[in-house]
Design a protein around this nucleic acid. Structure first.
Lengths: 117, 117
DNA sequence: TACTTGTTATAGCTGAACTAGAACTATAGA
DNA sequence: TCTATAGTTCTAGTTCAGCTATAACAAGTA
């Protein structure tokens, strides 16, 4: 599983980490039932604080992608499959946005607005 | 043009305002060539600081939705039409996300990841 | 029991967001 | 041209989220 974190990005580190794990889950880099590295361990290898990693794990737990328990660690649920089902619809938006030359931030904002309706 | 701002939301005020104006431009509440209220004026009516309003205006200028010049104010460009063209694709994502019970934050994150590829 | 690993609490640092006040300047209109 | 308009730039103070650092605690596992 390849996890890339960019400390210079304005996106919070815990968000980047969660997104990265999500991506791995969708791409098949991590499979259902598989266990993620222990928070302290991952924190060491990514040079982050344990709390930052745990916050990412908790975010993923809140959305149901991960089952998180003491002594056991973080285990990927079958929810990744649902995310995969969204991929083509999202891909269509990205393609069209690129054609229309609309930047990611704007598209993201338009998406959030659409959710409010 | 109806602009709603929620001070208790975690989303920055300038982002909310920009999104709100974008929404009005797409919905037809503001049309191409039309002029937005002066920043100081809008700041008064929304009970925001002028700088916050101007930051929203500058954001919209950066994405090309607004033409911003001293003494003239902010004028909507024809770019709003492009945003409208994205609407159906975005609507499809929102519908599917609701069916799959995937929350807006996650969808937004998945979208940004998709843009990186 | 001993080890692993997430949970919770406290605390300090930094930067973004927001507000406030003021001076400046390009543009529009009389 | 004169004047009001309205965005631009600068300085500065406050608040809060994000991140880091320690440390004690609790539920699983071996």
């Amino acid at each position: 599983m390849l996890l890339r974190i960019d400390p210079s990005s304005p996106t919070p580190l815990f968000d980047q980490l969660a997104a990265s794990i999500r991506g791995a889950a969708i791409a098949g880099g991590v499979k259902t039932g598989e266990r993620l590295p222990a928070a302290r361990e991952l924190a060491d290898s990514l040079e982050l604080n344990v709390h930052t990693v745990l916050r990412a794990y908790q975010l993923l737990r809140d959305e149901g992608l991960v089952d998180l328990r003491r002594g056991r660690g973080a285990i990927i649920t079958d929810r990744a499959e649902r995310y995969s089902q969204l991929s083509s619809a999202i891909g269509a938006v990205v393609d069209q946005a690129r054609t229309l030359d609309i930047n990611p931030d704007t598209v993201s904002s338009l998406l959030r607005e659409a959710f409010k309706k």
